[in-house]
Amino acid sequence: MLITFRNVSRYYNDWPALENINLQVEQGEFLVVSGPSGAGKTSLFRHIWMGDLPSKGLVEVAGYSSDRIRKNDLPFLRRKLGIVFQDFRLLPERTVFDNVALPLQVTGTSTKAIRRRVFSLLAEMELNHRRSSYPHELSGGDQQRVAIARAMVSHPVILLADEPTGNLDPEVSRIVIDLLIDINRSGTAVILATHDPRQVPAGTAKFIYLDRGHLVNPNFWDGYRQL
């Protein structure tokens, strides 16, 4: 099992962001997490990359466990993950090439290997002609695709995408979602947080719903009105 949540609760000053969550994600799975604003989607993600630890319960990710992980282990856990945000979070003073190369640069990969990997990835994603551009020169869709390239450059086993289409129009969102589906087909587990689960075709993914920190059964869930 790649990810296990066992009775996980997280309180911020007594306010439950996550409440008794049980969850498992397997190798190569596609998981869609939806729910209204403030439901706890981002909190759930933060527990996966262990930027936060549970108040109660246990999180296990790629062999690291929340009750035993040490500060020095965090970089090694995160090298197995790729993370994409709603607001892209590209570094503005670096070119597309350097943004995508960053995860390799901070882990001591040789310059030659970095060039080889980044060029082939940019070519694959049809971003090669943009490699010398700066983020602000790109459209939102291209910025998000660069962010996805950065997340994928070191071959993660899990890709976490937290509302990656939140700032994009429907057409571009379509392209980004298709890209995530492609990535999943090539074997990477993908976890996508979205307000609109209908973006992902049924059958491609497993769907879960969060409401005020609780996992809810979609069949009895009346939250669709809010989506």
Binding site: G51, F76, R78, I83, L91, L102, P103, V106, T107
Partner: peptide, 16 residues
Amino acid sequence: ALAVQIMSIVGAPGWF
């Protein structure tokens, strides 16, 4: 702050 956050998220060691 952004660079610091992104570096730690992509697995840069603390000393880096």
